[in-house]
Amino acid sequence: MMRTLMVGVASLVFGAAAAVAQEEHAKVRLISETKALMPGKTAWLALHFEIDDKWHLYWNGINDSGFAPRLNPEFPEGYKAGEFLWPAPKRYVQPGDILDHIYENHVTLMFPVEVPGSVAPGERVEFKASPEWLVCHDVCLPGGADVKLTLPVVDQDEGAPASDDAGLFAKARLRLPKPLPKDNVPVVINVAEGKVSIQAVGAAELAYYPGLNGVVYPSLIKEGQRKGDKLVLSFRKGTDGASRLKGVLEVKPQEPGEPMLWQLDVDLESVNKATPGPSDTDTRSRGD
C-alpha cells in the first residue's frame, strides 16, 4: 500500500511538473532516416516507440489479444505513407492458452514515403500523424499521440545526410524478415497429413510467427517454437480457403550470432506436388 501510494504521489508531482496528465508506458516519435527529402526519391520515416520495462506493444500478425499500432497519417497532398515494415516479434504466452506476438523495450516501425518529383529544393514539408496503439503489461492501456516532423527538400546532387536517428533504422532492419532466396534455399518445407514441417538445417532453435491471411494454426502455442532445426505445425485452411503458409521464421544459429529471419509465403497446396514421387519427398520452397 505504501509503495502504491508513493507511486501515486510521484506520478502526480511528475504530472504537474511536466504537464503530462496521463499514464503512458510507451512514448512515440515520428523520425526520418535522413535529415532532408530529395525530389523523386523514397524517404524512410518511422514511428519509434520507447516502451517501459515489462510493458509491450503488438505485432500485426495473428494474436489472441491486443492491437497493433496504427499510423493514422495526415500527410501533405502528394505524400502517401507506405505500409509499416514490421520487425520480427517475440512470442508471449499468458494463462488460458493466450498467445500473442509482441515488442518489448523499443520498436521502430519503418515506412516509405515517395517524395513527388515536382517539389522544389528549399521547400519544407511537415508530416503529421495521430498514431494509436495498445500498450499492455498485466493490464492494457490504449495510447495515442499527435506527432509531427518537418523536413527540408534538398537537391539530389546535394544529397540528404543521415539523421541522428539513422541508427534506429539500421537496428530495425536487422529484425526485418527477408524473402527466401531462389537458390540455395535455406529452408525446406514439407506437407503431410495436415502438418507442415519447416526445416532449417543446422539451426539451434526455430520460432514461427504467423502472419495475416494465411492458413490457421490450431496448436501454435505448443508447436510454434522449439530447439533443433525442425518445426512441425498443424494447420488447416482458413475459412476463406486460404492455403498459404504466411509468416516469419526465426532461425537461431548454433554459433553465437544474429538469428536469420525469413519471410515465408508458400502455397501449401502446391508443396510436394511440384515433384513426382512419394508425398514426403523434399520440396524446396520458393521464396515467392
Binding site: 502526480l12 496521463q22 499514464e23 500485426n60 495521430s130 490504449p142 495475416l212
Partner: peptide
C-alpha cells in the same frame, strides 16, 4: 478470412485523448 482482414482495416481515429486515463486515474493509484 474476414476476421483477419478486419485487422487490417485502417481507420482514422479522431481525438486520441486517452480514455479516462488522465489525472483522476493517476490519483486513483
Amino acid at each position: 478470412m474476414m476476421t483477419l482482414k478486419s485487422r487490417r482495416i485502417l481507420g482514422l481515429i479522431a481525438g486520441m485523448a486517452m480514455m479516462g486515463v488522465a489525472a483522476p486515474s493517476l490519483m486513483a493509484q
